[in-house]
């Protein structure tokens, strides 16, 4: 049950998008998200959606996975749509009590929906096509200039790598403990709030105990392999921006400039 959370899961495939430099992917994703936020009319959204769809197809990750990440957001999307639908002024199409539906409202709601969906697609694109290791390597490299203000970029990246590495392990562990305790007669589904919170104690304590054990073991394993922080440390994976990355950047920049111009 817990395993069905897919947000931020890497989906290994052979594709041009998978092979891109993680730094370039992070930069371009940020650019695309800004483009989504500044786009205003239907034409701009149509162009953006077309572009995102093309990239999604290039990445060769099944569309069903993206839709799955959308599912938990469905309520939020519908809610913002409804707010937008009723709150715009303009040409009135239907009216009932204090509620008015306007032509502008419908457009606004539609665009809002497309905007949220695009945002989810773009951020999922990054996490589906970039392995956690690559992602943190990319972030570390992008954060390096912050050294000037004494920002510990290596340590932050290492912490992220470890956290990402252990999330699936923790989920697996939680799944197992939940099963073990429900076989001992705990009911997680029914009862009031207090009862449900109480039911979590027998799950959380063993989970913390094993997480601390694991952290201890990991620390020993790292120390025994002479880990001593980022000072003078080189990376096995050399990030390199290649021609394909520059091409992708050019296309993206051209698209965004185009959107701003029209």
């Amino acid at each position: 049950m817990l395993r069905d959370i897919t947000l931020g899961q890497y989906f290994p495939r052979e594709s041009v998008i998978h092979r891109m430099d993680p730094r370039m992917k992070i930069a371009l994703m940020t650019a695309m998200i800004s483009a989504c936020l500044i786009a205003q009319n239907a034409v701009e959204y149509a162009i953006l959606s077309g572009f995102v769809l093309a990239v999604v197809l290039l990445a060769r990750v099944p569309i069903s996975l993206y839709l799955k990440t959308l599912k938990p957001l469905a309520f939020f999307i519908v809610f913002t749509c409804i707010i937008n639908l009723f709150s715009a002024d303009g040409e009135i199409l239907a009216q009932w009590w204090i509620f008015r539906i306007t032509r502008e409202g419908i457009t606004l709601a539609g665009l809002m929906m497309i905007r949220v969906i695009l945002l989810v697609f773009i951020s999922s694109l990054l996490t589906y096509t970039t392995s956690p290791i690559q992602l943190t390597n990319g972030l570390e490299s992008l954060m390096r200039p912050l050294k000037w203000v004494r920002f510990p970029s290596h340590d932050v990246a290492m912490m992220m790598t470890i956290a990402l590495r252990f999330i699936p392990t923790l989920i697996e562990e939680a799944d197992k403990i939940i099963k073990a305790q429900s076989a001992r007669g705990i009911d997680f589904q029914s009862g009031g709030l207090i009862k449900r919170i109480k039911a979590l104690v027998p799950v959380l304590i063993p989970l913390f105990v094993s997480a601390f054990h694991r952290a201890d073991e990991l620390a020993v394993a790292m120390e025994s392999r002479c880990y001593r922080g980022g000072e003078g440390r080189t990376s096995m994976i050399r990030l390199r921006v290649r021609a394909a990355d520059w091409l992708a950047a050019t296309v993206c920049v051209a698209l965004i400039t185009g959107l701003v111009m029209i």
């Binding site: 562990e173 197992k176 403990i177 099963k179 073990a180 305790q181 076989a183 001992r184 007669g185 705990i186 104690v201 027998p202 304590i205 063993p206 105990v209 094993s210």
Partner: peptide, 26 residues
């Protein structure tokens, strides 16, 4: 009853007595 692999990972009570009593109390 189900004894999972490494069942000691599910122990959470403060005393051995409470740990054993947890199931029947439920």
């Amino acid at each position: 009853g189900m004894v999972f692999q490494y069942p000691e990972n599910q122990i959470f009570e403060e005393t051995v007595y409470k740990e054993i009593a947890f199931g029947p109390a439920n």
